[in-house]
Amino acid sequence: MTIPPPTPFPYAEFDGHPATEADLRIPAFLNYGHFTAMQVRDGKVRGLALHLARLDSANQELFDHALDGERVRKLIRHALDGAGVRDASTRVYGFLPPGDTETTVMVTVRGPARKSTEPHGLMSVPFARTVPHIKRPGEFGQTYYARLAARAGFDEALLTMPDGAVTEGAITNVGFWDGASVVWPAAPSLLGITMALLERELPGAGLESVRRPVTLDGLGAYRSAFLTNSQGIAPVGRIDGVEFTVDEELMERIGQAYDAAPWDTV
Results as ranks from 00 to 15, higher is better:
L30V: 13
L62V: 00
L80W: 02
H51P: 08
F95H: 15
A53R: 10
H51K: 15
L52T: 06
P112E: 07
G43S: 07
R71A: 10
K74E: 13
R71H: 09
V40M: 02
R41W: 08
L24R: 14
L122T: 00
K44E: 14
T101F: 09
N31I: 03
A37M: 09
K115W: 06
D87S: 02
D68Y: 11
L96S: 07
R73D: 08
V92F: 02
M106R: 11
L48A: 14
V125H: 03
H120E: 05
T36L: 12
F95P: 00
L30S: 04
M106L: 15
Y32E: 13
V125P: 05
H120I: 00
H65S: 15
F63D: 08
N59A: 11
E118V: 14
Q39K: 12
D87R: 00
T117L: 04
D81A: 15
N59H: 01
T104E: 03
L30W: 10
A28L: 15
K74N: 12
S57K: 02
R25C: 14
G94L: 00
P112C: 06
V40T: 08
P119V: 13
A37W: 03
P27C: 09
T130L: 10
S124C: 13
V85A: 05
L30D: 10
T130C: 05
E102F: 13
G47E: 11
E118D: 12
D100H: 11
H51Q: 05
P132E: 05
T104C: 10
L50D: 01
G99E: 09
F127V: 04
R71Q: 05
P119T: 04
S57R: 12
R129N: 02
D23N: 09
M38H: 08
T36W: 05
V131K: 10
S124I: 13
S89W: 11
S124H: 15
A79Y: 07
H78S: 11
R86Y: 01
V72A: 03
A83Q: 01
K74V: 04
D100R: 03
V109Y: 04
G47S: 15
A58E: 04
R77E: 11
E118P: 05
T36Q: 10
R41S: 12
V85H: 01
G94Y: 02
V92M: 01
K115H: 07
P132Y: 07
